[in-house]
Nucleic acid binder design. Structure first.
Length: 363
DNA sequence: AAACGCCGCAACCGCCGAGGT
DNA sequence: AACCTCGGCGGTTGCGGCGTT
């Protein structure tokens, strides 16, 4: 019944492969081809488990494996594919010729994942870290909606460990002011243009796409709050909010700052037809030929469930993401690119995190 | 120069689905 | 139908190299 065991694990070698073992394995496979891993070690004269031989071949010895650092295009593809496929490394590797799932997995865990985290992007969902990003919309909501069910104090308490201390202090101050003198505070807010502007512009969405509007908004605040003690704090809040969105607004495709504050959670950059279809990910914005066309992902569901509000465009290729075509043919990072350049390249994912914020706390 | 810590990557581990017996 | 192995996959580990103190 059944097959014989794959191999007797007793007496089989483990650990790093020697050049002699590699040579034996290569020679055998060149003669007989890969496969039948069960009998291969014995036939090839290797004291290894068949599984170990298969891994050594598929991950290292295969002649079509591309060695060396990942290019911009490859990294771009990995990010795109991961946003669609999740940790399906083999599926990602299948779309990156010459790269193994193990290699991609390692590269993701050691480079891309850390960079995304550093830039405030959740590497699992590919969405911006809401705990870092969304305070601006929280504040605007709390300030402009007196009947809001949002309890700012509770919120501040709950997020105390996560937020930038400066923002946290402002939020706390605003909360106390709101409680202490809520009538006057809200009256002043409602009477001035601050809230009107926020409402008209939907506050944060406008910030990312039209920073000048936010600058105007910031200028309006002192004029409309000079009679209250909240003015300095609103100014500070506005400034901090502005700082937090500058990173977004510096690039036209950085749309995900909008979605978190829009009530309908529909990315402004996605039209209705795309939103209605789950397979909208691989848009024509992809500039990388290794990235499959839209239809190839039919059947895949977004991995960022719960983050449908997140604009996929922001993780897909953009003109900024792709390097200049003139340079893209030799964009291997080890030779011509540095981590700084990659930081620049990945700035499309970046929103400003204050230097004082220890990102390690979020890892 | 030695000790220490960090990082990257090759390799292993354990699980699962498919398929053979 | 039940049992078993194979092949594949994702997660994890451990070692060697490198940089810092």
């Amino acid at each position: 019944m059944g097959r014989a065991p794959c191999c007797d694990k007793n007496g089989l070698k483990k650990g790093p492969w020697t050049p002699e073992e590699d040579h034996k394995l290569i020679t055998y496979i060149q003669l007989h081809g890969p496969g039948n891993w069960r009998s291969l070690p014995k036939d090839a004269g290797l004291q290894r488990c068949g599984k170990s031989c298969r891994l050594r071949w598929t991950n290292y010895l295969r002649p079509d494996i591309k060695r060396g650092r990942f290019s911009f295009e490859e990294e771009e593809s990995i990010i795109q594919l991961h946003s669609i496929l999740g940790n399906k490394w083999s599926a990602i590797a299948a779309r990156l010729p010459g790269r193994t799932d193990n290699e991609i997995k390692n590269y993701w865990n050691t480079h891309i994942r850390k960079r995304l985290l550093r830039n405030g992007i959740d590497p699992v969902t590919h969405a911006p870290r809401l705990d870092l990003l969304d305070l601006s919309s929280i504040l605007s909501s709390a300030l402009c909606n007196p009947s809001s069910l949002l309890n700012l104090s509770t919120l501040v308490g709950n997020t105390q460990a996560l937020l930038n201390p400066d923002l946290l202090r402002l939020a706390t101050t605003l909360s106390s002011l709101k409680q202490e003198n809520s009538d006057l505070f809200l009256q002043q807010l409602q009477e001035n243009q601050f809230c009107n502007s926020l409402l008209q512009n939907q506050a944060v969405p406008a910030l990312s796409s039209q920073p000048s509007q936010f600058e105007n908004l910031a200028q309006q605040v002192p004029a409309c709050t000079t009679t209250t003690s909240t003015a300095p704090f609103l100014n500070q809040t506005t400034q901090l909010m502005q700082e937090n969105v500058e990173g977004f607004s510096s690039h036209p495709t950085s749309t995900f700052s909008c979605q978190n504050s829009q009530e309908n959670f529909v990315p402004s950059s996605l039209n209705d037809s795309l939103v209605s279809q789950p397979n909208f990910y691989c848009s024509s914005t992809s500039t990388n030929p290794t990235v499959p066309a839209l239809g190839e992902f039919s059947g895949f569901q977004p991995v960022n469930n719960g983050y449908q509000n997140f604009s996929i465009d922001s993780v897909l290729s953009t003109p900024l993401m792709s390097p200049d075509p003139l340079n893209s043919s030799s964009t291997h990072v080890n030779s011509s690119s540095t981590e700084d350049e990659r930081e620049c390249y990945s700035s499309f994912l970046k929103f400003e995190i204050p230097e004082s914020l220890d990102i390690d706390d979020f890892l």
